[in-house]
C-alpha cells in the first residue's frame, strides 16, 4: 500500500488551481468535470508521477467552520517539503503570498507558514 492522493479543501477550485500552479509551481495533472465541480489534481514538477494533491471543493457545511478554526489558531493542515525555506519565503512573498510565520528554526527543521488564499494555511519545511 502507498499514498497516492492527498486532498486539500479549497473555497474555489479555479482560484486554487491558479494559485497551486502559477504561484506555488505545481503542475496540473487531472481536471475533469464532475457535476458542478471538478476532479482537479496537481503534482510536483520534482515528482510528476508521485503523490497527487486533490483540490477538493469545501462546500460541505462542516468544512468551513473547521478550516476557520484551524486558520484562526495559525494551524497548517498540510505541509510541503522544500530545499530552502528562506528562498521560498522570499520568492512567494514577492508574488504577494502572505506568511503567518516567517522562516523559523524548529528543532531539526526550518519551517514557515503561508496562506493559500483558498482558506488554508500551508507549512513549508526544510530538513537541516
Amino acid at each position: 500500500m502507498r499514498i497516492h492522493l492527498s486532498s486539500i479543501m479549497v473555497d474555489d477550485q479555479r482560484k486554487a488551481l491558479a494559485f497551486y500552479t502559477d504561484v506555488l509551481g505545481f503542475l496540473p495533472k487531472h481536471d475533469v468535470p464532475v457535476g458542478e465541480d471538478a476532479w482537479i489534481t496537481v503534482v510536483s514538477p520534482e515528482d510528476p508521477d508521485g503523490v497527487q494533491l486533490v483540490l477538493e471543493p469545501d462546500s460541505h457545511p462542516a468544512v468551513r467552520p473547521f478550516k476557520d478554526a484551524l486558520v484562526a489558531d495559525g494551524i497548517p493542515f498540510t505541509s510541503f517539503a522544500v530545499a530552502d525555506v528562506a528562498a521560498e519565503h522570499e520568492r512567494l512573498t514577492a508574488l504577494g503570498v502572505k506568511f503567518t510565520q516567517p522562516p523559523t528554526p524548529m528543532g531539526p527543521a526550518i519551517t514557515a507558514v503561508f496562506d493559500d488564499t483558498c482558506g488554508n494555511l500551508i507549512q513549508i519545511e526544510q530538513m537541516a
Binding site: D73, G74, I75, T100, Q101, T104, P105, M106, G107, L121
Partner: peptide
C-alpha cells in the same frame, strides 16, 4: 523573541 505569533507557532516554539 517574536511578537505577533499564532497559537500554532507558539506551541511549535515551546516544543522545539
Amino acid at each position: 523573541a517574536r511578537d505577533g505569533q499564532t497559537l500554532f507557532e507558539l506551541c511549535a516554539r515551546l516544543t522545539t
